[in-house]
């Protein structure tokens, strides 16, 4: 009952062009049926994400570990709440990040859980920069 061959084939890596995404905006793309948020973060959002005391977080992880170095403005996360799988809304909640309407979990501008029932940060999907304005997810 595991995924069949065609489902796995359809889950192959995808490429996303980042050039049309302005600073402060984000896009949602689907990969393997999951929504992936690609956020072009502002300076303020990056600073906020890095100013936090990592040890005080429910799921401690530094912002540096969640983005690719040299591309700090880009945050790529799977937009599925780690609580029960709803899709959080971007640019909402009190941490300049994501807010899940189902059970009230709040994520910061690095996609880390800050408040609510979710146990973990929004996962970062496997991706790499093909060029400065293009990423490959998967």
């Amino acid at each position: 009952m595991n995924p069949d061959a065609s489902t796995i084939a359809a889950g192959a890596p995808i490429e996303v062009d980042l050039s049309p995404i302005a600073e402060g905006q984000d896009v949602k793309v689907f990969w393997r049926g999951k929504p992936i948020y690609i956020s072009h973060r502002t300076k303020k959002q990056i600073d906020e994400a890095r100013a936090v005391n990592v040890a005080s977080l429910p799921d401690p992880q530094s912002d540096e570990a969640r983005v690719k170095s040299g591309h700090e403005q880009w945050l790529v996360v799977i937009g599925i709440c780690t609580h029960l799988g709803c899709i959080p809304i971007a640019h909402e909640g009190s941490y300049d990040g994501f807010f899940c309407p189902c059970h009230g979990s709040q994520y910061d501008s690095s996609g880390r859980i800050r408040q609510g029932p979710a146990p973990a940060n929004l996962p970062v999907p496997p991706y790499q920069f093909v060029s400065d304005t293009k990423i490959q997810i998967g």
Binding site: N2, P3, T7, G11, R32, G33
Partner: peptide, 10 residues
Amino acid sequence: TLLWGGYAVG
């Protein structure tokens, strides 16, 4: 994943 038969409900 076994319940879904994929990477998400589908």
